[in-house]
Write a protein that binds this DNA or RNA. Sequence first.
DNA 1: ACCTGAACACCGTTCAAGT
DNA 2: ACCTGAACACCGTTCAAGT
Lengths: 234, 234
Amino acid sequence: VTEVPRGPTSRRAPLTRDRVLRAAVALADRDGLASLSMRRLAQELGVEAMSLYHHVANKDALLAGVVDVVVGEINDEVARVDAPAPEDDWRGALRARILTARTVLLRHRWLPRVLEDASSFSLPVARYFDGVLGTLRAGGFSYDLAHHAMHALGSRALGFTQELFEPDDADVGEEQALALLAAAADQLPHLVGMMAEITHDDEGDGLGWCDDQTEFEFGLDLLLDGLERRRAGA
Amino acid sequence: VTEVPRGPTSRRAPLTRDRVLRAAVALADRDGLASLSMRRLAQELGVEAMSLYHHVANKDALLAGVVDVVVGEINDEVARVDAPAPEDDWRGALRARILTARTVLLRHRWLPRVLEDASSFSLPVARYFDGVLGTLRAGGFSYDLAHHAMHALGSRALGFTQELFEPDDADVGEEQALALLAAAADQLPHLVGMMAEITHDDEGDGLGWCDDQTEFEFGLDLLLDGLERRRAGA
DNA sequence: ACCTGAACACCGTTCAAGT
DNA sequence: ACCTGAACACCGTTCAAGT
């Protein structure tokens, strides 16, 4: 048998944990979380599914690794951003941290789902929260109040909120919601009233008038204001 | 061939949508959400998997139905509870609603996960939120502020928060967290400091000292206080 | 050491067939 | 009308085998 010269395709870069995780992030970004299966990921890397198990213990470990990659991205970005010194303005400092985290999460909208599942208290995640805690401490919080604050912020500390009604296709969801309101208007007087006022006000014709970023910041500021009041001992 | 007399097992109640949904809730309560597959559910009902499709369009529809069952439970309970009149005390009224919803959710801890996925804006869910909105309106909120308020509350309006670090086995998670803190203490000064103070204070030896209910109410009150301030036009 | 192929025990769902 | 059985196209993962 003669040796077949290996083409550039067969001389592929060796698989590494890092290459696996980055490919996983890219695949989820492109095709959604549902497409992130061991088999699809392997295919993406031009490899057999079982090869992945040499670099990642199992699918849970893959997801945990993926979380670390993205939270690492957040940590890098947070370190780079210039924010008020927390000693002078803890609120501004924390707000900047959180809104920075949010910009990264908006590039990986599937991450919240993954974060909830995987037992994801890893070093990168811990480092992010250590930074939040440090900001609060510099702003004069006791450990006890800072602890409550972290719970109160919850996922908001990482830049996202539980989106309760977010169907895959926003337009379809909106249509369904409007149909429901119309069909059961008598049972939903306040929702109907709200919709009536809002569609009248600004010609928005549905739920599309909710600006995620505005609502996120409204809720965040509500919490930060309340925390400052508690800190100041009101 | 002789007719075999049908035992009580074979004379089972006919399958109905309601029976399917209630069995699904019971199965998830007992064995967890991961066990809620069409095949397992059918087995639980003594029926073939395909029979379910006569009462439920597909798995998504099953999950949507399950949400409706539980939110229906919430609506019933909310209607029964006696709370302050919202005209007198909107905060007390809303607080009572939300903490009631929470008691139901604590009986079905898997529900939050389901709620996020399924395009779950159904009539029972709309009725719940209509009640929240009505409470705010009675308390003097404009539709605009009430709308912001509902976004700010998010899933908290239904009685739960995004639990970021909730591994299947809490003890294992705690152990891992402590191991991580020990291993990377130099990179996590604030978390380590907080743990040191807290374990010293009350002999709790880990993260078990977080009382979910207390933290939930702390965050809720923070938001309600902030909303009242905005309403009063501060 | 790293990768593979076949196999196992699961999924949701379609379809044609039974009563 | 309601239920079934076989089949399809997927999963994650184990294991023994290849290089």
